[in-house]
């Protein structure tokens, strides 16, 4: 229903010239918001081109800077509102890392905090109207998921040597079942980065696309109020999902890290 039939229609209409602007009354472009385009000019997107990705990632950085650096600049013992939000985020992730990975996982806390802050801010910033959601792109989430996956795997082998392979050998299961379980464990281990990345990107993309589809219905006067109500409801859900997905990404990172540090099943 989206671009392709519309395009085919346009092609025909271009022959018929005039009437085509009226025809485009109910047009859905739910995926247009995800297009990466250069910020200046109209050239191709090279590796170092300054694009909307750059802009919104920069805004993400500024948001984090504002919350965690400017918000805490007074170092007050009795915190201001911004400072307590920053402290809340710190305590939240610190406790998560400590609870899930144990005491020896705490030294990886800054990396996990980096991931969490980036994702949660990118998700929230992406909820602003007219914005671009960087975390809705598989390229972005896949890099983070692969980074986590590789880091955890390398760390597991460095810390435990071959003992890390014990993760796949379920010693509590009957001996006959172990090879099968090992196969399943290995598959699930290698699927981790895929599900890890697609979960985040898919959630972000899905919510934004659905909002955009509802927004497309607003063009019809009769159902416009319903559409606005639906957009509001979806937006509320998306705020929740934005946070939960960041939380889930982070806690799964912690779980994987725990596997690397304590591979015993």
């Amino acid at each position: 229903m989206m671009t392709r039939p519309n395009r085919a229609m346009m092609r025909e209409l271009e022959m018929a010239s005039e009437a085509h602007t009226e025809e485009a009354g109910l047009v859905f472009h739910p995926m247009d918001q995800f297009i990466v385009k250069p910020l200046f000019g109209d050239g191709p997107v090279g590796m170092f081109t300054i694009t909307n990705v750059t802009l919104w990632m920069g805004i993400t950085i500024l948001g984090i800077f504002a919350l965690l650096v400017l918000g805490t600049r007074r170092r007050a013992v009795i915190p201001t509102r911004t400072q307590s939000i920053g402290e809340l985020a710190y305590g939240f992730i610190y406790k998560m890392v400590e609870d899930v990975t144990g005491k020896d996982g705490v030294k990886y806390f800054p990396y996990i905090m980096t991931l969490f802050m980036f994702i949660v801010f990118a998700n929230f910033v992406g909820l602003l109207p007219m914005s671009f959601t960087t975390t809705s792109h598989i390229a972005v989430t896949a890099v983070m998921a692969m980074a986590v996956f590789l880091a955890v795997t390398i760390l597991g082998f460095v810390k435990n040597g071959a003992g890390f392979l014990g993760l796949f050998w379920v010693s509590s299961a009957p001996l006959a079942l172990r090879p099968i379980l090992a196969l399943i464990e290995i598959i699930s281990y290698f699927v981790r980065p895929v599900s890890h990345s697609i979960r985040l990107a898919g959630n972000m993309m899905a919510g934004h696309a659905v909002i955009k589809v509802f927004a497309g219905f607003a063009a019809i006067t009769a159902i416009a109020p319903l559409s606005i109500v639906a957009i509001t409801a979806m937006y509320g859900l998306e705020v929740l999902v934005s946070f939960i997905q960041a939380y889930v990404f982070t806690i799964l990172t912690c779980v994987y890290l725990k596997d690397a540090l304590h591979p015993a099943h």
Partner: peptide, 20 residues
Amino acid sequence: TFGNQIFWLLVTLVVIYIIL
């Protein structure tokens, strides 16, 4: 656009890491 996104993502993550 993958190269572009990955490049800026890495820059962003490094900057955030340094800030944090």
